[in-house]
Design a protein around this nucleic acid. Structure first.
Lengths: 198, 198
DNA sequence: GGGAGAAAATGACTGTGGTCAAGTTTTAGC
DNA sequence: GCTAAAACTTGACCACAGTCATTTTCTCCC
């Protein structure tokens, strides 16, 4: 892991071969594969270590009295900044986290669960403060926001959003939409659904 | 492309090597790389062909008078079924579509744009029928729903949702949340935001 | 028809992730 | 202290994606 952090930091993830990594760590290549299921899993393990640190940092920055939208934006943008600090690193990590191979499912889920738990915790506080509906499943709501985060990342990787500022704006809008809802606000849901004309 | 469709169908994407594909097509391997930037781009090209067909099918199934939530669920589930028909195929495709390498950004964006346009079209109809707020940017709303779709797929690939039925239920809940909003419905946004206790 | 130059096709070659049979070290029982 | 089994380590080896110098084919003008 030490060697991995150094080499990935210096030369990037893609251009560090497993053989090089093994040599730097002073062990055989095969040994690496008896501790990690694939090269990508090394990345996940690295990410898991970092995440502890990042999440602590986020918790410190979080103002408990801030509006829910502001809290979520802070969390999502912090994660965004971390994961896109290096483009290749982030892409590989996200690919493996979001659409994991069978071989890395366990590690992937463990990491994603950390995100989701952080979300759930924030939403629970929100519910207690009356900022959030009581009749929703928080795990679904967390998934909802995780989806917005993925979308923003995807748009950034597809060059549809060019800068951090673009990402922030899009997230802000999507969060606002998620909180206030998309149907016309003066009209209850069942009426809106079957309305056939302006 | 013909050879690709056959071989990917028979042996799967991962286990079809580019050399094999070239031999089957009766051309040299290098020739393939003068038409496609990478092996993954062949997949994207294949997907683009299929998408025309899938989208036509979706448009036929869409009841124009159905509630918005129902329409979106139909669209998202159709895409889900298509992309997860074969697990490996879908994973590689989604990885490349959602977090593309520089080399495939163009093709990726072209495909994603088709999705988003389909969404925008549906939302525009929704706005005309008064099912949707007038004061929202439809492209952001489309992104919002694309995010929910990605989340559902991710949960399926991570084994957090096991069956198609699980995916449908989660999507249904998330769509409902997106439409009706997450803040308490009798309370306007600005009041909810700074409320400090139940 | 011929020849020169552009365009397209090719497959031997390279570097990589991942495997596994053989080799080495540790552990446990006597 | 000795031995046998269990646990761990290893690097030669494999299959594959992607490259590029060379060869083949096409194009167009005289």
């Amino acid at each position: 892991m030490e060697a991995a952090i150094n080499l990935f930091g210096e030369r990037g993830y893609q251009s560090t071969s497993v053989s090089t990594l093994a040599k730097a760590a002073g062990i055989g290549k095969g040994t690496i594969y008896s501790y990690f299921a694939s090269k990508n899993e090394i990345l996940l393990a690295f990410c898991e270590e970092e995440l502890t640190f990042i999440h602590k940092e986020i918790r410190e920055k979080l103002d408990p009295d801030a509006p829910l939208a502001e809290k979520m934006l802070l969390v999502l943008m912090s994660e965004f900044r971390f994961v896109t600090k290096n483009k290749d690193f982030g892409r590989t990590l996200l690919r493996e986290l979001t659409f994991p191979k069978e071989i890395t499912i366990d590690k992937s889920r463990m990491i994603e669960e950390r995100f989701l738990n952080l979300f759930v915790k924030i939403f629970k506080e929100g519910q207690e403060k009356g900022q959030l509906r009581q009749d929703i499943e928080l795990i679904i709501t967390s998934g909802h926001f995780y989806g917005l985060y993925l979308m923003a990342l995807s748009a950034w990787y597809s060059d549809r959003l060019h800068t951090e500022e673009d990402v922030r704006e899009s997230l802000e809008l999507m969060i606002e939409q998620a909180l206030t809802g998309l149907i016309p606000q003066e009209m209850p849901l069942h009426a809106a659904n079957r309305n056939n004309g302006p």
